[in-house]
Simulated assay, not measured.
Amino acid sequence: MRDSQAALTETLRRLDALLQKAGKDRSDVVDVEALSYESGVPPEVVTVLLRGESVPEEAFGTRIRSRITHLRETRRRPDGNRYSYNEIGEHFGSSGAAISAIVNSGGRSGPLAATQAGIESFFFGTPNGFLSAETAPALDTALQPVLRELERADDSGQDGLFGFDDVRGGALRRAQGLPEHSWKVLNATLKALLEQDELEDDR
Score class of each variant (00 low, 15 high):
Glu38Asp: 14
Val167Tyr: 10
Arg2Pro: 15
Arg77Pro: 09
Gly52Trp: 01
Leu19Asp: 05
Val146Thr: 15
Arg75Thr: 07
Ala138Asp: 01
Leu49Ile: 07
Pro127Glu: 09
Val55Asp: 05
Asp165Tyr: 06
Leu71Phe: 10
Leu172Phe: 05
Ser121Met: 10
Lys21Trp: 05
Lys24Met: 15
Pro78Leu: 10
Val55Ile: 12
Leu18Pro: 01
Leu193Ile: 11
Arg13Met: 06
Asp197Ala: 15
Ile102Ser: 06
Ala136Asn: 01
Ala97Leu: 02
Ser182Pro: 00
Ala6Pro: 00
Leu178Ile: 03
Arg72Trp: 07
Leu139Cys: 01
Val55Leu: 09
Glu180Gln: 13
Arg67Tyr: 00
Thr47His: 10
Gly177Ser: 14
Arg77Gln: 14
Leu131Asp: 05
Ile64His: 01
Asn104Ser: 15
Tyr85Phe: 15
Leu12Asp: 01
Asn128Tyr: 11
Arg108Thr: 15
Arg173Gln: 12
Tyr85Cys: 02
Glu134Trp: 00
Leu194Ile: 07
Gln158Ile: 01
Gly23Val: 01
Gly61Tyr: 09
Trp183Gly: 01
Gly96Gln: 09
Leu143His: 03
Val103Asn: 05
Asp79Thr: 10
Arg65Phe: 11
Ser94Ala: 15
Val41Asn: 04
Val29Glu: 08
Ser105Pro: 13
Arg108Phe: 03
Leu150Arg: 08
Val146Gln: 06
Asp155Phe: 14
Arg2His: 10
Leu18Ile: 05
Arg2Phe: 04
Gln116Trp: 00
Asp159Val: 13
Ala6Phe: 08
Leu143Met: 09
Ala153Pro: 03
Asp25Ala: 11
Leu50Val: 07
Leu172Gly: 02
Gly118Cys: 05
Lys21Pro: 01
Ala59Asp: 13
Thr74Cys: 11
Pro43Trp: 02
Asp28Ala: 15
Val103Met: 08
Leu49Tyr: 03
Ser66Pro: 03
Glu151Gln: 15
Arg65Gln: 14
Ala98Tyr: 12
Val48Pro: 00
Asp31Tyr: 03
Glu180Cys: 00
Leu18Arg: 04
Gly23Met: 07
Pro179Ala: 00
Arg82Thr: 11
Val146Gly: 03
Glu151Tyr: 08
Asp155Asn: 08
Gly40His: 04
Gly177Ala: 14
Val32Gly: 02
Val55Asn: 07
Pro78Trp: 07
Ala153Cys: 01
Val146Asn: 02
Pro145Phe: 09
Arg67Thr: 09
Gly160Ala: 14
Ala97Gln: 06
Asp140Tyr: 08
Val167Glu: 04
Ile88Lys: 09
Leu186Val: 14
